[in-house]
Amino acid sequence: MTEYKLVVVGAGGVGKSALTIQLIQNHFVDEYDPTIEDSYRKQVVIDGETCLLDILDTAGQEEYSAMRDQYMRTGEGFLCVFAINNTKSFEDIHHYREQIKRVKDSEDVPMVLVGNKCDLPSRTVDTKQAQDLARSYGIPFIETSAKTRQGVDDAFYTLVREIRKHKEKMSKDGKKKKKKSKTKCVIM
């Protein structure tokens, strides 16, 4: 069974824990209790493949930012979460993405942009803004509501699919490099 290491990042209060708990335990946590770091595991079937999701729910508070490099190193894919009623959390996505790329030393890291709290009427981040940002990053965008469960499975499952595509691409690139290195030079 394939294991996928997913990391949920975003500013404090955007609903990272609520999304994760909704996926794992099928219930909505409405009281806000700032996370330092929590880890969850769940076995699911995605596109006919049974897999184990190892999900790291991270601290959004700035005082825990020193811990970010460590979990970013171990993560295979990242859910970059903002709240649709919090423009600052949307603007912060850029910083999370840049930090992930720096730590992973790669421009090509599996990510999904997630606009959470889409059940709320007080939207300050337009869907088109988020779609445009995701398009500019070359990553999928999904709106979710941890409260109603809308888009929750889709967000995590899409990230797994992005990781699969990335692994497939990397193995193809690896095979191309191996083929090239088999060419021999004969000096007579």
Results as ranks from 00 to 15, higher is better:
16 K>S: 07
7 V>N: 11
23 L>S: 15
56 L>K: 04
62 E>P: 13
41 R>L: 06
5 K>Y: 01
61 Q>A: 13
44 V>A: 12
15 G>N: 00
31 E>F: 06
34 P>W: 03
39 S>W: 03
59 A>Y: 03
5 K>E: 07
44 V>M: 14
48 G>N: 11
37 E>Y: 06
32 Y>F: 07
56 L>S: 13
6 L>C: 07
22 Q>M: 05
50 T>K: 14
26 N>K: 13
7 V>H: 15
14 V>H: 12
22 Q>P: 03
38 D>N: 02
47 D>F: 04
31 E>C: 07
11 A>T: 08
19 L>W: 04
26 N>V: 04
25 Q>P: 03
42 K>T: 12
6 L>G: 02
19 L>G: 14
56 L>D: 15
19 L>M: 14
4 Y>K: 15
31 E>M: 09
15 G>Y: 00
6 L>V: 11
46 I>Y: 10
12 G>P: 10
33 D>N: 05
23 L>D: 05
27 H>I: 13
33 D>F: 04
56 L>H: 10
61 Q>M: 10
3 E>T: 09
64 Y>V: 13
64 Y>K: 14
31 E>Q: 08
8 V>M: 07
43 Q>E: 13
43 Q>M: 09
42 K>F: 08
22 Q>S: 14
37 E>G: 02
37 E>D: 15
20 T>H: 01
25 Q>T: 13
52 L>I: 15
59 A>F: 02
9 V>W: 06
58 T>C: 11
63 E>V: 04
48 G>W: 04
5 K>R: 12
10 G>V: 00
19 L>T: 15
28 F>Q: 03
30 D>N: 10
50 T>R: 11
19 L>N: 15
41 R>C: 08
21 I>K: 04
45 V>L: 11
22 Q>K: 13
62 E>S: 10
40 Y>W: 05
43 Q>K: 14
9 V>N: 03
55 I>V: 12
58 T>V: 08
27 H>T: 13
25 Q>I: 14
44 V>C: 12
21 I>G: 10
64 Y>S: 15
47 D>A: 08
20 T>R: 01
12 G>V: 06
54 D>N: 07
41 R>G: 06
13 G>A: 12
3 E>N: 05
53 L>Y: 07
14 V>N: 12
58 T>R: 03
53 L>K: 05
19 L>V: 12
47 D>Y: 05
54 D>Q: 04
50 T>A: 11
47 D>W: 04
41 R>V: 09
52 L>N: 14
12 G>Q: 08
49 E>G: 08
44 V>R: 12
34 P>Q: 06
3 E>C: 07
39 S>P: 01
2 T>K: 15
41 R>H: 06
5 K>T: 05
57 D>H: 01
54 D>K: 04
11 A>F: 14
40 Y>T: 01
17 S>C: 02
14 V>M: 13
29 V>N: 09
18 A>L: 02
29 V>H: 10
60 G>S: 08
24 I>F: 15
43 Q>F: 05
59 A>W: 02
34 P>Y: 04
21 I>M: 11
34 P>M: 07
16 K>M: 03
49 E>A: 09
16 K>D: 00
26 N>Q: 13
52 L>G: 15
9 V>S: 04
9 V>I: 13
52 L>S: 14
50 T>L: 09
10 G>A: 07
51 C>G: 10
47 D>S: 08
62 E>V: 08
14 V>R: 05
56 L>C: 14
45 V>R: 13
55 I>R: 01
37 E>C: 03
40 Y>V: 02
19 L>I: 13
18 A>S: 10
47 D>G: 11
23 L>H: 14
49 E>P: 08
36 I>Q: 03
37 E>L: 03
64 Y>I: 12
64 Y>N: 15
61 Q>T: 14
27 H>F: 15
26 N>P: 10
55 I>A: 08
37 E>F: 06
48 G>Q: 11
5 K>L: 02
